[in-house]
Design a protein around this nucleic acid. Structure first.
Length: 786
DNA sequence: GCCGACACACTTTTT
DNA sequence: GTGTGTCGGC
């Protein structure tokens, strides 16, 4: 991307970029892009000057407004692409916005250098002016894991028992201060003593000092240092005032105080700030989001125009009616009422059903899904939205048994996996020899006999001499401070790093990466590992190398992943989505299943205990988000019994059920068709449950079975199909590469359960005695020959 | 320094 | 019930 700081001329410059930009946006110069908007949307697009708050209810075309507004500003030549600041929370949202603006205005979207997440834009600004806040422009960005390890060191350096005062807790505390825009000296005196008997602020200060020594920032700092920069250097702030003629903010209800302050500083310039959000969808209070930011927008920006988008294009009247009635129980909202013009009189009401326990819940929802599928509905249009991730399990178990394709969205992210972080640590040390945290991470992974004692020695030496650990290690291997055996392997490691560094630029970075993992013994470590997930980890490492191909160099790749910790999961398989309510925000499905509406789970007990009324209201907003994800069908479930923390508990239906309007709701009496199945079946658990009242009696007519047949037929055609793969928690049934059935006693591999031997074959269903997971019944398309 | 045994926790998650 | 992280023994 071109230098964002190349200041564009205020007016069109004949020739170069100007001409191209104008040519590119010519297609939208006409009125058609506004013509497709409703009056409120149009107002939101055309009110370009001054502060604007767009309250956009669920499904009211929020993204369309944002993207069209940008297109409009460009088309009317009010600003160049590089003069627009557009901020989102996630990389995904930023990507989507860029894509959709591109659809409207063509290639001049590439000039939008300032479209990105708060953090990405924060880094960009910070790198420009790093020296002004005591950093070098090459500063590294620490993720949560590095943060915690660093804090552990700080705590230990103080001689405090890390057991009593866990680093995690300190991290949460410091994070909350950073979210509120507080540097160590700003922390209110009463709060500073919140950790280790009055040492909270002391640790905060010490941690920040360590960060500076490491030339590093954590995520919170990216904004906090921006604030410091702007406040201490008005000339720099002024530069950005000049630059950002128009500012747009997505999901404003999710901003924390630091982000709010940042926006406010920048908006002081031209005051052309447009925030889009929905107070009813604020579900991130627990991580510092302030609904208050949106509630008091008009006070913060006097003369602000507030526009409400209430015309919903997504859901049926029943769904909107149910959701609106529910959310109306909240106090302290700005108030919107969604409505739709396109109401279908035959649309189903929101359904509420109950089940005995979570397994029956999963079974019944599985049946419902298969029934819908038989009627021709795509699995991609169905989602199960849960409150807490442990609920996903019963669905996964059930769907594996049914052979129903599903994908888990969210969950552990690719770059958070241990093997990926280890590999990245190696790369980081190669690219940045001073990256102590990365070095410490892998110095003894795989095992090299360099234990804690040695690392402590290196660390102490490094600190006393104010040098990076790697250099300290180099020095200490010249002496006899370290035992001979350890010294040899440490020397070897240092030599390896030197060698790899010499190859930087000399050989292709993907090749270098492979070499590093190979020569360090890291790959071998996992090859030797007999645990069930080792093959998956090796596969992930390969995937990591593959994903590096899109980058120029190792350094470019590392810079990218520091901020963009997500990946596209554009898998085109038809599959039911399973995810938490939180990760469902912004998505939509024809059919949405909402299981687990029980007191204590939803609303979650902890939310009630810790945040009282505010907590309850946030839970209710979560319920609102859940229901409004549905276009046509929303099916709510609650179980009478649920196992929580290993104990069976009988449950009380969620209070939210009573808050739904009867007019829009159908209560289904009893859906269980498993008479005699395990009634009162507490304690009856284990593989034998599959044998009761054969839930598979009708299996051979189910889509799952037919799908398995089809998979097998396809597999026979193309042998290269390969193993089942786990991609970003996504379980995709692939064929086995052979039409022939498995044999009893045969060794197989299952992505979730690992290796095992077949003990029983029944059509396409295998009973496998897994080495780690015990006996499970699985569909053969989910295993590969081991 | 390494491996096995016990304790502990266990809502939500992005950057 | 299950996974993770720390302590103690070898």
């Amino acid at each position: 991307m071109s230098d964002p700081f190349d200041p564009p001329a205020p007016g069109p410059r004949p020739g170069g970029i100007a001409a191209r930009a104008m040519a590119a946006r010519a297609p939208v110069a006409g009125p058609d892009y506004v013509a497709r908007l409703n009056p409120e949307q149009r107002l939101a697009v055309e009110t370009t000057e001054g502060p604007v708050l767009v309250l956009a209810g669920a499904g009211t075309g929020k993204t369309r407004v944002l993207t069209t507004r940008i297109a409009h500003i460009l088309a009317s030549q009010k600003a160049w692409p590089s003069q627009i600041l557009a901020v989102t929370f996630t990389n995904k949202a930023a990507r989507e916005m860029r894509q959709r603006i591109g659809d409207l205005i063509g290639s001049s979207v590439e000039g939008m250098a300032w479209l990105g997440t708060f953090h990405a834009i924060g880094v960009k600004i910070l790198r420009r002016h790093a020296e002004l806040v005591g950093l070098k422009p090459s500063f590294t960005i620490l993720d949560t894991d590095d943060q915690i390890r660093l804090m552990k060191q700080v705590i230990q350096a103080e001689g405090i028992d890390e057991k009593r005062w866990p680093a995690k807790q300190l991290a949460a505390l410091i994070d909350s201060w950073k979210n509120r825009g507080l540097t160590p000296k700003d922390v209110p005196p009463g709060e500073g003593g919140a950790f280790a008997g009055g040492k909270g602020v002391k640790f905060y200060t010490a941690y920040q000092d360590r960060l500076k020594v490491l030339n590093a920032c954590d995520f919170g700092d990216l904004l906090l240092e921006n604030l410091r920069l702007f406040r201490e250097h008005p000339d720099v702030l002024k530069e950005y005032h000049e630059r950002f003629r128009y500012m747009l903010v997505d999901e404003y209800q999710d901003t924390n105080i630091a982000q709010y302050l940042w926006l406010r500083l920048l908006a002081q310039g031209r005051r052309n700030i447009c925030c889009v959000g929905d107070d009813d969808q604020s579900i991130y209070g627990w991580r510092g989001a302030e609904v208050d930011n949106i509630l008091r927008f008009e006070k913060d920006f006097p003369g602000a125009v507030v526009i409400r988008l209430e015309r919903n294009y997504r859901s049926t009247g029943h769904i909107l009616g149910a959701a609106s009635h529910l959310i109306a129980h909240n106090e302290g909202r700005l108030g919107k009422t969604l409505f739709t013009d396109a109401d279908d009189p035959d649309a189903p009401k929101v359904q509420v059903a109950s089940s005995w326990d979570s397994e029956e819940e999963a079974r019944a929802i599985g049946e419902e899904i298969e029934s819908l599928q038989r009627q021709g509905h795509a699995l991609n249009e169905m989602a199960i939205l849960v409150r807490a991730s442990f609920q996903m399990r019963s669905f996964e178990d059930r769907f594996v048994t049914l052979g129903l394709n599903y994908r888990v969205i969210g969950g552990p992210r690719f770059y958070e996996r241990a093997e990926i972080r280890d590999a990245l640590a190696y790369f980081r040390v190669v690219a940045q020899p001073a990256d102590d945290l990365a070095f410490e991470r892998i110095v003894n992974t795989p095992r090299r006999g360099i234990g804690e004692t040695t690392v402590r020695l290196l660390y102490d030496h490094a600190r006393s001499r104010q040098i990076p650990i790697l250099q300290a290690a180099d020095e200490l291997t010249q002496t006899s401070e370290i035992a001979a055996k350890t010294r040899t392997s440490l020397r070897e490691l240092i030599a390896s790093f030197a060698r790899w560094r010499n190859s930087l630029g000399a050989i292709k970075h993907t090749e270098l990466a492979e070499t590093i993992l190979e020569e360090s013994g890291y790959t071998e470590m996992w090859q030797q590992d007999r645990s069930a997930d080792a093959p998956g980890r090796l596969e992930n490492l390969k995937e990591l190398i593959r994903s590096m191909e899109g980058f120029e160099s190792l350094e470019a790749f590392l810079e990218h992943i520091a901020l963009v910790m997500d990946r596209d999961s554009a898998e085109n398989n038809d599959a039911v989505s399973i995810m938490t309510l939180h990760s469902a925000k912004g998505l939509e499905f024809e059919t949405v299943f909402l299981p687990g509406w029980e007191e204590g789970l939803f609303p979650h007990q902890r939310a009630l205990d810790e945040s009282g009324r505010a907590g309850l209201e946030e839970e209710r907003r979560l319920a609102y988000v859940g229901i409004t994800r549905a276009k046509k069908r929303a099916l709510i479930w609650f179980a009478s019994n649920r196992r929580i923390h290993g104990l069976w508990q009988s449950t009380v239906p969620s209070r939210f059920l009573d808050e739904l309007p009867e007019k829009h709701v159908d209560v289904v009496e009893q859906t269980s068709s498993y008479g005699g199945y395990n009634v009162g079946g507490i304690g009856n658990y284990g593989a034998s449950r599959f044998d009761r009242a054969d839930p598979f009696a009708n299996t051979y007519s189910t889509p799952g079975w037919q799908r398995a047949q089809k998979n097998r037929a396809e597999g026979a055609k193309s042998k290269s199909y390969g193993a089942s793969r786990l991609i970003e928690g996504e379980l995709i049934a692939k064929s086995t590469g052979s039409a022939s059935a498995y044999a009893l006693g045969e060794r197989v591999f299952h992505q979730k359960f690992g290796y095992g031997a077949i003990t029983e074959i029944e059509g396409n269903k295998l009973t496998v005695d897994f080495e780690k997971a015990g006996s499970k019944k699985v569909v053969d398309s989910f295993v590969t020959k081991g």
